[in-house]
Design a binder for these strands. Sequence first.
DNA 1: TAGATTGTTAATCGATTAACAATC
DNA 2: TAGATTGTTAATCGATTAACAATC
Lengths: 217, 217
Amino acid sequence: MSKSKTISLSVIRRLPRYYRFLLELKNNGVNRISSKGLAEKMGTSASQIRQDLNCFGGFGQQGYGYDVPRLFNEISIILGLDNQYSAVLLGAGNLGRAILNHVDFASRGFRLTAVFDINPAIIGTEIAGMTVMDAAKLEEYCKSVKTDAAFICLPKESAEPVADILYRCGVRAFWNFSHYDISMKYRDAVTENVHLNDSLMTLCCCMTESRQSNSGE
Amino acid sequence: MSKSKTISLSVIRRLPRYYRFLLELKNNGVNRISSKGLAEKMGTSASQIRQDLNCFGGFGQQGYGYDVPRLFNEISIILGLDNQYSAVLLGAGNLGRAILNHVDFASRGFRLTAVFDINPAIIGTEIAGMTVMDAAKLEEYCKSVKTDAAFICLPKESAEPVADILYRCGVRAFWNFSHYDISMKYRDAVTENVHLNDSLMTLCCCMTESRQSNSGE
DNA sequence: TAGATTGTTAATCGATTAACAATC
DNA sequence: TAGATTGTTAATCGATTAACAATC
């Protein structure tokens, strides 16, 4: 059903937002929406919405608009949320703990199978239902449990050796909160970086330049 | 010294990364670097670096390259890090606490003056050297202490009323971790959104499409 | 002077916006 | 049928890359 044309990264980055708005519409019992209506709700343009949605096949109907439940469903498939990729989280410090408690992995396409840390005071404790394991057992673990992705909540220094181990065990996707640049060394790995400190600097710069940033909107 | 041409958001988003690499070079005692040398280190192109750096004036020297300490200094100024904007943090839950402990506000251009929460169990406790205040006192506080920016670590529901209060008190910059869309209502506010759940979905999508994401790189 | 490397212009590429024929 | 709204093509805009004259 979906077109085989590759989807540009600009479009991919807008998909989660479409997903959110469509989920809300669906939950509110809205069955039908036009590109114009959705554009007003989202603060974007009807033209962009039609272009975006058309990347993965024509789900609209001329003179009618889009079927909300169907469109929501199609976007879930494009996002690949039902793949439930297996993942491990590295680093149960402040950031790692916040991610564990704050992010809903399952509804975002992942199944978290383990959490690791090197700190003996943390190892064995339970966070958000996961018992923290000894990082020394990481390689052994990943060799026995197929792992698709890793969430790197480590400082820059520990990120490199840990990424090496993970890559060796076949992990090819990283959600990276450290400033270590995984994709420079491992070109075939899929990497999504979240640099909180950089984001805050961007805000500072935009305040100074008095310019809108609006990332991801 | 710097040109008055406005700097595009694409360039601004690359500045924190230049900042990091130049700081490291400077700390390693490197005084001089060519666009080609920096490009190799950063995994980008010399052409882009020269274009970017030229947005804010010619700091290079033909046949020589760039003076590292000077360039670092200029980028700090463009980023506006020495402005030390005053800021408050809203929501001392898992995420708020991680931000408090993990992010170095001062070196990113901000001075955190207060932390607020509505949970009586948290109010009065100390996190990263800050005593959590009662959110009921937010308006009173912001009216007496000039506040430039707010860090919104709240769920979507509480984000809207809190943003209303803050805007009323003159806050015009938001580092927003919630899915509430501040910039739609307040067009003149500078907003930098960090949507962790969206970011994870993007990773899922890129794994499914087998495409590089490399945000912010 | 010769070599290196910038600043800047021109060419290319991609993304967004506008327009409209197709059609429900 | 007439009105609405899509899918899609064309036009515009902006960002990246390539090229090269200027110059240290």
